[in-house]
Computed example of a mutant assay.
Amino acid sequence: MKRLILLFSLTAVPLTQVIALECSINNAPLLDFGSKDPFVGGSVTANTPIQWSCSRNFFEVFFGLNSSFTMCLYVGTDNNGDVFPRNMTSITPGSSIPFNVYPSPAGSTVIQPNTDAIAVPVSFSGFQPSSGTTTAFGIAPGPMPSSVLAEVHDTSMLNSQVRRINTGQSCNNTVGTLLTTYTLDATIEIPDQCRITANDLDFGTQSTPLAQTDSNTFIDVRCTNASPFTVGLSNGLHASGGSRRMSDGSNFVSYGLFQDSARNVDWDNTTNRKSDVGLGTGTSIMMTVFGRVPADPLAVPGDYTDTVTVDVEF
Rank of each mutant, 00 (worst) to 15 (best):
T208P: 08
D220E: 06
A226R: 14
D214P: 14
D260A: 07
S215Q: 00
L201P: 03
N199A: 13
G249V: 09
C194M: 01
C223D: 09
I196Y: 07
C223N: 06
T230H: 06
T205K: 04
D248V: 14
D248S: 13
S250H: 10
T197M: 09
D202A: 02
D260N: 11
S234I: 07
A226S: 15
S234E: 05
F258Y: 15
R222N: 12
T208N: 00
T197H: 04
S227P: 11
Q206N: 13
F218C: 09
V231N: 14
G241D: 10
N235L: 15
A198S: 11
G242S: 07
Q206C: 00
I219D: 00
F203Y: 03
S240E: 12
C194L: 10
L237S: 00
N216R: 02
D202Y: 05
S254F: 07
R245F: 11
N235C: 13
T213A: 05
D214V: 15
T208L: 10
N251E: 09
G242N: 12
S215I: 05
N225V: 12
G249I: 05
V231M: 14
I219C: 08
V221F: 03
S215H: 11
Q206A: 05
Q193H: 14
N199F: 09
F229Y: 13
S240G: 15
T205G: 03
T197A: 01
I219K: 06
V253W: 07
F203M: 00
F252N: 06
G241Y: 03
L257W: 13
P209I: 01
L201R: 08
V253P: 02
N235S: 15
S254K: 08
R195S: 03
I219T: 03
S234V: 06
A226N: 15
S207Q: 01
C223S: 02
N225P: 11
R244T: 04
P228S: 10
A198C: 09
S234W: 00
I196A: 05
P228W: 06
D248C: 11
G232A: 14
D202K: 07
D220T: 08
A211C: 03
D248G: 10
V253F: 06
F218S: 08
S243K: 09
T224R: 02
S254R: 08
Q212N: 13
D248A: 11
S227N: 04
D200Q: 06
